[in-house]
Design a binder for these strands. Structure first.
Length: 510
RNA sequence: GGCGCUAUCGUCUAGGGGUUAGGACGGGUGAUUCUCAGUCACUAAACCGGGGUUCGAAUCCCCGUAGCGCUGCCA
């Protein structure tokens, strides 16, 4: 893929006008996994593009060779795809504005830095890292109220001196000449007008001594060249935006529109991290969350549709999403609510669609092979448990008695239901169940109700002990559905086993 | 330290001068088919503080406070 070094002439970039399809980008840095904060930013970009019929570009900002992690890329792609945030242009997708890796565009950035150099808007700086560190130390000590940052030491070097240093191959960076005492203002679509005094900004580095651009240069050049109309990014970039405005100005380009998304915080109000809740998108996948649930939950962090809807499938999110309704306040990631929402989506899912994920968990549990091979049976089990589970894993874990006899009985439930007076009732059940035709839900219910009446007890007196006998626990799906799926042979076996337990207990006086 | 952003129930939020400040999660109480970790109903719970502007402020302005961000040849 060849890209012209410079596309678009200076000053020709038109402002985006209301009604034009917007072009947005998500620009992660491959320094680690994609965390939910980044995912939310990607989601808002995606929703914004879809809502307005625009384009969503994925661009990889891999200009920091020190922090680059080779695995990060695959993880980021997998995370976005899992969440259903397919990008229109970018790695794997292609597009006319590529390449979409900044490391492949370094010639472009150098070219642009040269233009600024030639125009007198930037200068070469030969200061060593040691000098800069020393400078910072002194400023710290002096607690300088003003003018902290680079001291412009190289800003006015004589031309001859610069030539000599260049001839000697002296390492150097390129810095922007930031104007003195000017107000640099921009309009944030979420927060309104924000203004900085240029005296607050030091002469930032555009090109590093290794030839790679800084984020500031690469981001401005790429956003311009890729025709980005709206920059939707995390609010940690607010303070950098005036620098970017200055760079656009130096190039003679019209800046895009900006909207800074609020951050997502951990429950303790601190930064989200691996230690405080998962944070990584793929960790949530592993923990048994559905992509549509995480996506819906994330959309509601910092955004609301304005009415009382909360459970909103993707199409609804796209239809309702507008930047005006994005909140400026940071939001705490409340995993409990995520779990609730996951439960909602679990109920909405078909057993069929859940099968692969649940099956994968069951298969790690050394269960009987023949049962695991019977998909019809598995889907019945999933159907029963997805209604009352909050994570995929719960479906697999709470349904184990469909694959093997319970090893023990819940003590509390046993104390309540496994009493000696149950023995004759179990005998009656055993006899009736052995002959029941068909061994199916409705017939089973009829049998239980009839028998209860004959014995002069409430149906619950038969139902609860049966549940405990066949499942080992005091809760679960409807009993008759459960018995039908388990099958006559299994049910009778487990009832007999429970009968033995109760008899033994009776003798112990328990 | 400087600069900036933010501030409604515990949490996510609605609200854009006049409301009994609404909804959701979680909590509590109750109901329910055989259980609930399901479902339904009910309930407790908030405008950070102080000044203005106004007949009237959750809403507009200022100050304070707190939290967060930036202050890198990281993004």
């Amino acid at each position: 893929m060849t890209t012209p070094l410079i596309s678009g002439k200076i000053g020709e970039m038109a402002d985006w006008k209301e009604g034009m399809p917007p072009v947005v980008r998500f620009a992660p840095s491959p320094t680690g996994y994609l965390h939910v904060g980044g995912a939310r930013t990607a989601l808002f970009n995606f929703l914004f593009a879809r809502h307005h019929g625009g384009r969503f570009i994925l661009r990889i900002e891999d200009t920091d060779r020190k922090r680059y992690q080779p695995d990060a890329l695959a993880e980021i792609f997998a995370s976005l795809k899992w969440l259903g945030l397919q990008w229109d242009e970018g790695p794997e997708a292609g597009g006319g504005a590529g390449p979409y890796f900044q490391s492949l565009r370094t010639a472009l950035y150098r070219e642009h830095a040269d233009r600024l150099l030639a125009a007198g808007r930037a200068y070469r700086c030969f200061c060593t890292e040691e000098r800069l560190a020393q400078l910072r130390l002194e400023q710290e000590k002096a607690k300088m109220a003003h003018g902290s940052g680079y001291d412009r030491h190289c800003r006015d070097l004589e031309e001859a001196r610069v030539r000599a240093l260049l001839a000697a191959d002296t390492p150097h960076v390129v810095r922007l000449k930031v104007p003195d005492d000017r107000s640099v203002a921009f309009h944030d679509l979420i927060r309104g007008d924000i203004a900085y005094d240029s005296a607050q900004l030091d002469d930032l580095v555009l090109l590093k001594s290794d030839g790679f651009p800084t984020y500031h240069l690469a981001n401005v050049v790429d956003d311009h060249l890729m025709g980005i109309s709206h920059v939707l990014r995390g609010d940690e970039w607010i303070a950098s935006t005036p620098k970017h405005i200055l760079i656009y100005e130096a190039f003679g380009w019209a800046p895009p529109l900006f909207a800074h998304m609020p951050v997502i915080l951990a429950p303790d109000g601190g930064k989200l991290s691996k230690r405080r809740g998962a944070a990584s998108v793929l960790d949530y996948q592993r923990a048994g969350f559905l992509p549509e649930a995480l996506r819906n939950f994330l959309a509601l962090l910092g955004w609301a549709p304005g009415d009382d809807r909360e459970v909103m499938p993707l199409e609804e999110l796209i239809a309702a999403f507008t930047l005006e309704r994005v909140q400026a306040k940071a939001a705490v990631f409340d995993e409990t609510k995520l779990e609730w929402m996951n439960g909602v989506y679990l109920q909405r899912r078909s057993a069929e669609s859940l099968l692969p994920d649940v099956q994968a968990i069951w298969e790690k549990m050394e269960l009987a092979h023949d049962a695991l091979a019977d998909e019809v049976f598995l889907k019945k089990v999933i159907a029963m448990f997805k209604e009352r589970s909050r994570k995929i894993g719960e479906i697999a874990e709470n349904s184990l008695y469909f694959f093997r006899d319970p090893l023990e009985y819940d003590a509390q439930a046993a104390k309540k239901y496994f009493k000696p007076d149950m023995l004759p009732r179990i005998d009656a059940l055993l006899a009736a169940l052995a002959d029941l035709q068909p061994f199916a839900q409705d017939a089973l219910e009829g049998l239980y109700r009839r028998l209860a009446e004959e014995l002069g007890v409430s149906a619950g007196k038969l139902i609860h002990p049966t549940r405990l006998a066949v499942s080992g626990v005091g809760f679960g799906p409807g009993l008759f559905e459960m018995l039908e799926t388990l099958g006559r042979e299994t049910v009778l076996r487990r009832l007999r086993k429970a009968r033995g337990q109760i008899a033994a207990r009776g003798q112990d006086g328990n």
